[in-house]
């Protein structure tokens, strides 16, 4: 994992009350759905969304945009950077 993604991974795990999966969270692994190792759901999406607002000041507009942005750790990082957030 690139160093800049580590705090983001930590934010997701902490806000969703999840343990890190074996080997850590890969940048391109799917976060949501029963097939994903982390198996996050809609309530987790809301939790991460507010945690991101608190940490980075970025407000994700709605649930559709939330799911798109939070597909993987990498897509979330790209989304936040595009919104002007500093991840480090």
């Amino acid at each position: 994992m690139t160093p800049s993604l580590a705090p983001l991974a930590e934010l997701i795990l902490e806000s969703c009350d999840k343990d890190a999966p074996a080997g850590g969270l890969a940048p391109d692994e799917i976060l949501f759905g029963p097939e994903a190792r982390l198996a996050l759901d809609s309530l987790d999406a809301l939790q991460v969304s507010v945690a991101i607002h608190k940490r980075f000041g970025v407000r994700i507009a709605d649930s559709k945009e939330t799911r798109r942005a939070m597909a993987t750790l990498a897509t979330l990082a790209d989304y936040l950077v595009a919104q002007g957030a500093r991840l480090d």
Partner: peptide, 12 residues
């Protein structure tokens, strides 16, 4: 405390 901090309680 979260509400007072920035008006945003975490959903959970």
């Amino acid at each position: 405390a979260q509400l007072r901090e920035d008006g945003l309680p975490l959903p959970l």
